[in-house]
Design a binder for these strands. Structure first.
Length: 480
RNA sequence: GGCCCCUUAGUCUAGUGGUUAGGACGCUUGGUUCUCAGCCAAGAAUCAGGGGUUCGACUCCCCUAGGGGCUACCA
């Protein structure tokens, strides 16, 4: 059995969006499951849109997700270089060989001419394929054009019997009928290869055994098959995985601001949650379990359970995964990641151990760390502003609040249990219980009618802070 | 326009000729609770449509519709 070698081949023209991340993940899982190698190749042949910053951003995102590669531009390998911009000699060589063998030819058509011809064919209701003008040029004509300094690209000659079949891991047999494509450019006039040519050359040169990529490349595969043929190379096996669609049901694309990994990272989603969610988009293991670690995913991942229909990226479910990881995985594990999301005043007011306790309480339901700020109010130091419902709740409970001041001020112990006990005693003494008992105190202490267990909140806030808040609330009642 | 791919609840999916069509998110209701959340329990909601094949179709075939992709000197 041939060694399993798969690659993820992003072009550094934007952030790594979740579609790309899912493709990388499937490749990575497949490689790990099969004991093969995972290669990272940068497809930066579109010089206009590519950038080094974007490239390193993609590398960072992959590392953050935990998808380390065995060979790549930053760490080398036996099949390098791993950046297409550094492999142009190979593409040029391949193109020259095809020209010499009469399987490709130089094309001198200008962009305007091409555009005009395409338009004509469209009007005539013909597929907008290249008409082969330059294929018919003889040597003399070519020489003339060259000395005239006309820019030349290289076009591949599509054989007349161009029906091709593909046995795809996910799609099964796909038939591309003859006449589907016209002669296509393999080397642009700027000397750089087009996607289909570079991908075919590199996949062969890098001994890639399986190409796992998005379905958007399915139609293009016929071109790559013809290139392998012409060059006498053995094609890899293909698996075209279904696209991830946006809410509008169209392909997720960088240009339309698709959800990207970096964004989720900065918003404080655990990487495991994203990986776990993404793994279940277009794939599912046998059984009902959905929370799976990376190791478990590796163990279960098989290409034959990849679905063939596209799926929509649903942030709501991602939120659920994320909250599950934070809660079940143990909040303390994420404390360092979460701390930067705490408001400054809260971080300054408590020692780390207290912050950990606060985080544990909030982690009961926290889709992302960026939501901490929305839930932190009860723990903010200082005196809460009383407005609306909270003000009303306090206003009707003067007696209760001043009694609570005494009850909470006495005694040595300050723990959730002792605080709970004192509130209960207080209630018994005043013959108040339930909401009537807790809500006014809660409102005075936190400024809100909702929040985590009140005794716990008070314990963490500290006696002084709690008493001050109640005194202030009382004062507010006296002087409305 | 041409070609290719896809079609189970709002969403992610299981299901490979005979199932009460299973699970998850979300939603609704109830329980627990000072409240929110959580947790527990219950519930509503799906095989795009039409033809075949078959004793029997979600499952196989065809057509239609819908969605998506490709059709670039983008990837």
């Amino acid at each position: 059995m041939k060694e399993v070698r798969v690659r993820f081949a992003p072009s550094p023209t934007g952030h790594l969006h979740v579609g790309g991340a899912r493709t990388a993940l499937f490749n990575w899982l497949f490689a790990r499951h099969e004991g093969g190698r995972f290669i990272l190749r940068i497809e930066d042949t579109d010089v206009e849109r590519s950038s080094a910053d974007l490239e390193s951003g993609i590398l960072d995102d992959l590392m953050w997700l935990g998808l380390a590669w065995d060979e790549g531009p930053d760490r080398g390998g036996a099949y390098g270089p791993y950046r297409q911009s550094e492999r142009v000699a190979r593409y040029r060589e391949g193109a020259e060989r095809l020209v010499a063998e009469g399987r490709a030819y130089p094309c001198f058509c200008t962009e305007e001419e091409l555009e005009r011809k395409k338009e004509e064919r469209r009007r005539a209701n013909l597929p907008p394929q290249y008409d082969g003008t330059c294929r018919r040029l003889d040597d003399a004509a070519r020489a003339r054009k060259r000395t005239g300094g006309e820019a030349e690209s290289v076009r591949f000659i599509v054989p007349p019997d161009s029906e091709r079949r593909l046995d795809d891991f996910v799609r099964g047999e796909v038939v591309f009928p003859a006449g589907m494509v016209g002669d296509f450019v393999i080397l642009r006039s700027n000397g750089l290869p087009t996607y289909n040519f570079a991908a075919a050359i590199d996949d062969a040169a890098m001994a890639i055994s399986h190409v796992i990529r998005g379905e958007e490349h399915l139609s293009n595969t016929v071109r790559q098959i013809m290139i392998y043929e012409a060059l006498g190379l053995e094609p890899p096996r293909f698996a075209h995985i279904p696209l991830i669609l946006g809410l509008d049901r169209s392909k997720l694309s960088k240009r339309h601001g698709a959800p990207n990994v970096w964004d989720f990272h900065t918003r404080g989603y655990p990487a495991e949650a994203i990986v776990n969610y993404l793994a279940f988009l277009g794939w599912s293991p046998p059984g009902d379990r959905e929370m799976l670690s990376l190791d478990e995913l590796v163990e279960k991942f098989k290409l034959d359970r990849v679905s063939s229909s596209p799926s929509i990226f649903d942030e709501v479910k991602l939120n659920w995964f994320s909250a599950q990881y934070v809660k079940r995985g143990g909040a303390r594990r994420y404390l360092d990641e979460a701390l930067p999301h705490f408001p400054e005043d809260v971080r300054a007011a408590y020692p780390r151990e207290r912050l950990a306790e606060i985080f544990e309480i909030l982690a009961e339901n926290l889709p992302s760390f960026s939501r901490i700020v929305d839930e932190i109010a009860p723990f903010r130091p200082g005196i809460p502003a009383l407005a609306g419902e909270a003000r009303e709740a306090v206003a009707g409970a003067r007696e209760l609040l001043s009694a609570s001041l005494a009850a909470l001020g006495e005694g040595e112990e300050w723990s959730a249990a002792s605080i709970g006990g004192r509130i209960k005693d207080l209630g018994a003494r005043l013959q108040v219980k339930g909401k009537a008992l807790y809500i006014p105190i809660r409102a005075a202490v936190t400024g809100s009618l909702h929040g985590p267990d009140l005794s716990r909140v008070m314990e963490i806030r500290g006696r002084e802070s709690v008493l001050r808040a109640i005194r202030s609330a009382l004062a507010g009642i006296e002087t409305p």
